[in-house]
Nucleic acid binder design. Structure first.
Lengths: 216, 216
DNA sequence: GGCGAACCGTACCGTACGGTACTGTGAATG
DNA sequence: CATTCACAGTACCGTACGGTACGGTTCGCC
């Protein structure tokens, strides 16, 4: 297992961050087709030459955009307290809602569309980045929560990754894909609460110990 | 509710089907970037002019490809027999494996990538087509199976769509997205069996009546 | 003030794509 | 045999993109 924290995080200058912001905005508004070098330069009030100097080429710009966005979405893990059944349920609900909110964010959707579109071309380099910096991070938060639940005797599971996989599937199902395919998001966002509740309830029925469910 | 079976299914000529096959092959091999009109014409030994005469424009070609592929994947629903607990579990397992097999197919992945890439541009026209002809069809098969299970007293659920959504999430989780992002598929295919088993087991624990599980 | 680095704006180049038009050809039809 | 039709093959056009080069401007530094 490696100890290296982050392989290469170039840490761009403020000016370059502004440019990346503009590029993300452009991508969100118009999709990959709108993300041309000339368009980015115009939107960010910079020159194409600077773009190539800073990011190498177009693929470098895309990678930088993903890294930049991932660096903004910091995943916090605050599971220090001793868990009660109610607290665990609360944390799971919070996690579910956060997950849905993140996946449904327009920037996240745009970047996932971008990476998926390039998956067959670049050997899934962008896809790996999204996986590594996106789901992996939020997965660690869930993993910590699950283990805390097990330590408190509230959850029972053998493999942690299996349990997380189940939780993820219960929460998201095919909602992410449907949003990526362009289905109207507003209709889904209103359902996030109910969806989270249903998922957490099912998850606790599957993995909760007798202590964690308010038995009759 | 409409009764129209299929809005417009142009039913292309054999020659045109060959062309669509070539186009799908091209798309699978090289992604959307490889799907140029000149490329399709060359691969299919036809002229660009014929392409435009048959399919109107490039978008028409894409739509035709989706419709064509969907017409090839016929979803059968054979739930005539009276269900026992073991038979229900068997059918669920079969459904789960089929679902994973379909979603992981290279043509399906390529078409989903294509539709997702165009989602922000064309108002999700291709996305709707994929949803309608893809998941909706296989969803009807699952729906029939679930209702048969309920009629036999083996399953207990209020809303059928909720139950199906749960089943889908348990089976697929984020596997579909990871495959779309380009993660190595061979490593996943070997896990389909275990995955299906885990999902069906969990689903039966959630929605199965006492009859359906071999209680101690 | 002189100087160099960073950078903007723009012009430019090669290429590739979507779409159209034209020519040739083989098969059916009378 | 003459005509027509469907089609392949190809040349062509306009456009747009990725990437590069260059002149002009600002800013810090000696």
């Amino acid at each position: 297992m490696q100890l290296a924290a982050h392989p290469h995080q170039p840490d761009y200058s403020p000016r370059q961050n502004d440019v990346l912001d503009s590029a993300l905005r452009l991508l969100v508004d118009g999709g990959e087709k709108a993300l041309t070098t000339a368009g980015v330069a115009r939107a960010a009030n910079c020159s194409k030459e600077s773009l190539y100097k800073w990011f190498g080429d177009r693929d470098g710009l895309l990678s930088a955009m993903i890294g930049f966005q991932a660096s903004k979405v910091r995943t916090f893990d605050d599971t220090a307290e001793t868990l009660t059944a109610a607290a665990l349920q609360e944390h799971l609900m919070l996690f579910a809602r956060d997950l849905l909110e993140v996946l449904g964010g327009d920037v996240s959707l745009a970047l996932n569309r971008l990476a998926i579109g390039q998956a067959s071309r670049d050997g899934s380099k962008l896809g790996s980045m999204l996986q590594e910096r996106g789901r992996r991070q939020i997965g660690k938060r869930a993993g910590a929560l699950l283990e805390a639940g097990r330590d408190a005797g509230l959850l029972v599971f053998g493999d942690r990754d299996d349990a997380y996989d189940t939780l993820y599937g219960l929460i998201v199902s095919d909602l992410h894909l449907r949003m990526l395919l362009g289905e109207d998001r507003d209709r889904m966002v209103k359902d996030f609460g109910r969806r989270a509740q249903k998922a957490v309830s099912a998850f606790l029925r599957l993995y909760g110990s007798e202590k964690s469910s308010a038995g009759p």
